[in-house]
Design a protein around this nucleic acid. Structure first.
Lengths: 210, 210
DNA sequence: TGAAACATACCGGTTATCAGGTAGGTCCAT
DNA sequence: ATGGACCTACCTGATAACCGGTATGTTTCA
């Protein structure tokens, strides 16, 4: 490794201890430099604009604007932005959506530090390296029926404890239509009732905590 | 700080990147040394037995045996073990249970690195430092009605999508009794139905993900 | 331009859930 | 030993949820 310019990294992560730790991990490497950090989606977008990092490390679970939305916003500004998702979420839908939004690859926080470092370098080099575990979840995902946008809205409201009648009113549709959506959701998620459906939706990354 | 023996730390955290980062954070301090790590509750107990660390940093969300159970097991072996919980969970019930189980204090992962370091030092010195945010959640907790052990069992099964009849069969009680428990749960959690109750239970740390 | 996916709506029938009440037994601690 | 908590059980009635089916309009895309 010659002493050319280091890879400039933006680290987006809301938990300060974790963020500081990741920064230390990366900066042990001579060719990596964390040039900016952000702890919300909004900050991520503005820091990206301000610093134009070579690689962005992005957590998905952020207060306010989510990591997913931040990815979309950044890629809209800079379609060639190289973003690595680094998160705990292992749901197949979360992975799919992140990649669909333009992330170069997806890493779980229980990866090895060396895997993270390798991935940052190869994403910087223009590759889209995919760990086998993630690849497996993606192929799982492609075999499953996806919820439609409307169905996602419905299951979200269900997860907040609203009744069918209330959901219908909020979406401006009839109660029976809300029921139809819910029935289709059950069928797709393989559950018999709303409570189980909500749990599956969280596990698969269709819904997100908080 | 004289160059006496450093504070010996056991770091329990299942996400390897986070664990490695925390280790680097701590080891920047001359008086702190991570002498062992663990990524499951079982490992935590055996590493604690093997190394007898001065301070244990414990995540709550672990595969297999939970951090909470690990705290209990460790404190049973070594009633004077000094354990600092370091987690994302901010639910009042999670905090209460951890302290009840014998944790010296409770830290969120979005604390400052310096806060973590200070806390480790003062816990090692025998103190039980409590951050204001945690204190506040605890006083909130004391004002709320707690679920009984049986009610926790019931809401757990509800969260897994079981019907009242199934829950009753699993617990060896009548369906009507299961309904009574559920009614009391609704009342205590301030909800009208099971789906909302499950969400509140997760948010408050009465139930845990997965 | 025709199929497919999506969102909408209604119906009839069954089952589950929720609400309110009463009450007996155990165990623990004041 | 008496009150309190907890767990248990049953009853009635009202409401919400679930199941299966049919059907229409729109959009999208091959």
């Amino acid at each position: 490794m010659t002493t050319s310019e280091p890879i400039r990294i933006l680290c987006v992560e809301d938990h300060r201890i974790v963020r500081e730790g990741i920064r230390l991990l990366l900066e042990r490497e001579a060719d990596l430099a964390v040039v900016a950090v952000a702890e919300t989606g909004e900050q991520a977008v503005s820091e990206h604009r301000a610093h134009r990092p070579d690689v962005t490390l992005m957590d998905l679970q952020l207060p306010g604007m989510s990591g997913l939305e931040a990815i979309r916003a950044i890629r809209k500004d800079h379609p060639d932005a190289r973003i690595v998702v680094l998160t705990m979420y292992q749901g197949d839908e979360a992975i799919f959506r992140a990649l669909e939004a333009g992330a170069a690859t997806y890493l779980l926080k229980d990866s090895l530090a060396d895997e993270l470092i390798d991935v940052v370098r190869s994403v910087h080099a223009g590759e889209r390296p995919m760990l086998p575990a993630i690849e497996a979840k993606l192929s799982e995902h492609s075999k499953r029926p996806r919820l439609t946008p409307r169905e996602v809205e419905v299951i979200k409201l269900v997860s907040e404890g609203f009744r069918n009648r209330e959901i219908a009113a909020m979406l401006g549709i009839s109660e029976e239509t809300a029921q139809v959506h819910l029935r289709n959701i059950f069928q797709k998620l393989g559950t018999r009732d709303r409570t189980a459906a909500v749990q599956v939706a969280f596990r698969r990354g269709i819904l997100h905590i908080r």
